[in-house]
């Protein structure tokens, strides 16, 4: 199992029947592949779909039957299509169970920076800032370190913020971490990973839960 699959599998265990979830592009989008068949979640897309599923090749290809990254999808039985105000009303109004987002940086206060690298490509925040303040639970799903080996979990984000003190849970290929008032609580380590290793690879301060256990996948 590679890192991304492990992260997606662990995040998929967080959901229950009827949850309304927005998955960011890339790794977070993989979560849907590991939701058990007996659980229906309503996937929310910024372009107005509430309840999409995988593409149905028997339907005509349609530019308006796509999710927010323009991939073809189907609308599940029980799903709906709404306008943008309603779609973001669902987000901001507290009707979205969770959002799962990738990131460049997340810090021990729960702030997240995932939309812009200083001096990098300037593309805009899209719906990310609304999602992080609106979703009842913000789950960061990311590889523990950046490509150059630096911890993405920091004492303080240095890149421009997407949201301030908004993240509730961080899932990486090494650890499951909850963000609390007291700080970051290390609750689970991935199979074959030690607590010491997680601490070594993390820039932020970690409080090791007395109940820390191996991640179940």
């Amino acid at each position: 199992m590679n890192s991304k699959e492990l992260i997606a599998r662990r995040v998929a265990k967080e959901f229950k029947n009827g949850d309304v979830v927005n998955l960011g592009a890339g790794l977070p989008g993989m979560v849907v592949n590991y939701i058990p068949n007996d659980i229906t979640i309503y996937l929310h897309a910024e372009n107005g779909i509430v309840g999409f599923g995988s593409d149905d090749p028997s339907l005509p290809r349609d530019i308006f039957r796509t999710e927010a990254a323009e991939n073809r999808v189907s609308i599940i039985p029980g799903g709906a299509i709404v306008d943008s105000c309603t779609g973001f009303g669902i987000v901001r109004g507290g009707h979205l169970t969770a959002t799962v987002l990738g990131t460049m940086q997340v810090d021990q206060e729960g702030s997240i920076a995932n939309w812009m690298v200083p001096g990098g490509k300037f593309a805009g925040m899209g719906g990310a800032m609304d999602l992080v303040v609106g979703a009842k639970r913000v789950i960061v799903a990311t590889e523990h370190c950046s490509k150059d080996g630096k911890s993405k979990i920091l004492k303080k984000c240095t890149f421009p913020l997407t949201g301030y003190k908004v993240v509730k849970t961080i899932v990486t290929e090494l650890a499951y971490i909850d963000v609390t008032e007291e700080g970051l609580i290390l609750k689970e380590v991935a199979p074959g990973v030690t607590v010491k290793e997680v601490i070594q690879k993390t820039d932020a301060d970690l409080i090791v839960s007395p109940d820390v256990c191996e991640m179940k996948l």
Binding site: D83, G87, F88, G127, M129, D130, V133, P160, L161, G163
Partner: peptide, 29 residues
């Protein structure tokens, strides 16, 4: 931010003086 964008347009069309939102606090916005 996309949700604020939609609501700002709605505010203009619905006769409101703007929006008050938590989105974008402590950010470039």
């Amino acid at each position: 931010p996309q949700g604020s964008f939609a609501e700002r347009i709605r505010a203009a069309g619905y006769g409101l003086g703007g929006i008050l939102t938590p989105t974008g606090l402590n950010t470039i916005v």
